[in-house]
Simulated scan of single mutants.
Amino acid sequence: MGLKDTLRDRFDGMTATQQKAARFVLEHPNDVVTASMRTVSARVGIPPATLVRFAQLLGFDGWPELKAALVQDMGLGSEPYAHKARSLVDRARDGGGLAGEIFAVHHQNLDATEHANGDALPRAAALLEKARAVHVAGFRACHPVAYSLMYVYRLFRDSVHLLDGMGGSLEMQLRALHKVDAVVVISFSPYSREAIAVARQAREAGCQVLALTDSPASPLALLANEVLLFSTQSPSFFPSIAGAQALSEALLGLLVSRAGKPGIGRIESAEAQLFATGAYLPPAPSP
Score class of each variant (00 low, 15 high):
residue 74 M to C: 11
residue 67 K to A: 02
residue 255 L to Q: 11
residue 148 S to W: 03
residue 151 Y to G: 01
residue 17 T to E: 15
residue 9 D to S: 09
residue 50 T to N: 11
residue 257 S to L: 14
residue 34 T to D: 02
residue 232 T to P: 05
residue 145 V to C: 08
residue 78 S to Q: 14
residue 280 Y to E: 04
residue 285 P to W: 04
residue 263 G to P: 06
residue 57 L to P: 01
residue 104 A to V: 09
residue 281 L to I: 08
residue 247 L to E: 07
residue 64 P to H: 01
residue 91 R to L: 15
residue 253 G to M: 14
residue 16 A to M: 10
residue 284 A to S: 12
residue 264 I to Y: 11
residue 142 C to M: 12
residue 168 G to L: 06
residue 228 L to F: 03
residue 173 Q to L: 03
residue 133 A to Q: 05
residue 191 Y to H: 15
residue 201 Q to F: 10
residue 215 S to T: 13
residue 287 P to M: 01
residue 4 K to D: 11
residue 214 D to F: 07
residue 26 L to G: 07
residue 173 Q to G: 06
residue 151 Y to D: 14
residue 139 F to V: 03
residue 91 R to E: 15
residue 146 A to C: 09
residue 163 L to M: 09
residue 135 H to R: 10
residue 195 A to R: 11
residue 19 Q to K: 15
residue 196 I to A: 12
residue 279 A to E: 08
residue 31 D to I: 03
residue 94 D to L: 04
residue 254 L to R: 15
residue 25 V to N: 06
residue 272 A to T: 08
residue 177 L to W: 04
residue 274 L to R: 12
residue 154 R to A: 12
residue 138 G to S: 11
residue 105 V to Q: 13
residue 172 M to T: 13
residue 137 A to Y: 07
residue 20 K to C: 07
residue 74 M to R: 15
residue 213 T to R: 02
residue 232 T to N: 01
residue 160 V to C: 00
residue 50 T to E: 13
residue 161 H to V: 02
residue 9 D to V: 02
residue 228 L to G: 04
residue 164 D to F: 08
residue 59 G to S: 07
residue 172 M to W: 09
residue 214 D to Q: 03
residue 213 T to D: 06
residue 213 T to A: 03
residue 209 V to L: 15
residue 270 A to P: 01
residue 9 D to M: 09
residue 240 S to Y: 00
residue 79 E to T: 11
residue 136 V to T: 09
residue 142 C to K: 01
residue 56 Q to R: 15
residue 246 A to M: 08
residue 29 P to G: 00
residue 140 R to E: 13
residue 65 E to G: 01
residue 20 K to D: 02
residue 271 E to Y: 14
residue 212 L to E: 10
residue 180 V to R: 14
residue 156 F to V: 01
residue 75 G to T: 05
residue 275 F to D: 07
residue 208 Q to Y: 05
